[in-house]
């Protein structure tokens, strides 16, 4: 499947607005190893919801808004594919602790925020959108599965698609079994292949065998981020896109792989 990448955004410690993040991803600026995750409160949300918005919501809304605008689409105008391997692991942890306690009465707000599609729900509420959204949770294959799904929807529906990936730090004890120690999000707007002003063209194909080793980012600083978050796998694609060189990537997906040829 050939699609054009017409918008992108990323947030992680040391990676902010596209202008700054692009320079780091392209290797023009070093990643500041001491930087903290810098996320503004999501302006799209009502003040009440903004105050209560957890980290996953802030991670996702920042990249969705920036990538949509870069692609020339109003936030909420595009159908969405959201991928998160852990969902809101911190909220789930809190609920599990309550359920194990002597007083297992749950908070209704926490409960509805624990659904895997809560973040996607806040995106559509924030933008007043009626566009369809799907939400995937595929453990270490979340990036590969979500990208494949987004490209297939883009081709099948012949329209641009917003792909959003996010994961937030996990709390112990689940965090001992699922390493996610930094917040990281990325968004990609894919459009049916077209000539002209795209960040890159992507040829994406699934093969059911020959799972390769996980490709790593080139820059050592990015490799550290990549290790700390399951959807950090998206950094490898972002790096390839910003370095303006044709490159072939292969990501493991189950026993198979997703091959991506990046044409700047």
């Amino acid at each position: 499947m050939r699609v054009s990448l017409i918008g992108a955004a990323v947030r992680a410690p040391g990676l902010g607005s596209w202008e700054q993040a692009r320079a780091v991803l392209a290797g023009e600026l070093p990643l500041d190893p001491d930087a903290l995750l810098d996320l503004p409160p999501p302006a799209l949300l009502s003040p009440n919801e903004r105050r209560r918005a957890g980290l996953p919501v802030r991670l996702a809304l920042a990249v969705c808004e920036e990538a949509s605008r870069m692609a020339g689409h109003e936030p909420g105008a595009l159908p969405g594919i959201f991928g998160s391997s852990n969902g809101d692991g911190a909220v789930v942890h809190d609920l599990l602790e309550t359920l194990a306690s002597a007083d297992p009465q749950l908070s209704p707000t926490r409960f509805h925020n624990s659904v895997h599609n809560a973040v996607a729900g806040y995106w559509s509420i924030a933008t007043g959108s009626s566009a369809p959204i799907t939400v995937l949770g595929c453990h270490d294959a979340t990036f590969a599965a979500s990208l494949l799904k987004a490209a297939s929807e883009c081709v099948a529906e012949a329209m641009p698609i917003l792909l959003c990936l996010y994961d937030a730090p996990m709390k112990l004890p689940l965090g001992a079994l699922r390493t996610t120690t930094i917040g990281l999000s990325a968004a990609f707007v894919l459009a049916p292949a077209r000539p002209g002003a795209a960040l890159a063209d992507l040829d994406i194909a699934f093969t059911p065998d020959a799972a390769p080793p996980e490709p790593e980012p080139i820059a050592p600083g990015l490799r550290s981020l990549w290790r700390q978050n399951p959807v950090g796998r998206g950094l490898v694609l972002l790096e390839a896109v910003t370095r303006k060189q044709p490159v072939s990537l292969a990501f493991p997906y189950g026993r198979g792989q997703i091959a991506i040829v990046v044409q700047p």
Partner: peptide, 21 residues
Amino acid sequence: VTGPAMTVSTACASSARACLD
């Protein structure tokens, strides 16, 4: 089956949405 496997989680619409995906 060795084609792509994916889990869709959109609350009470999950398995209906899986058909669309």
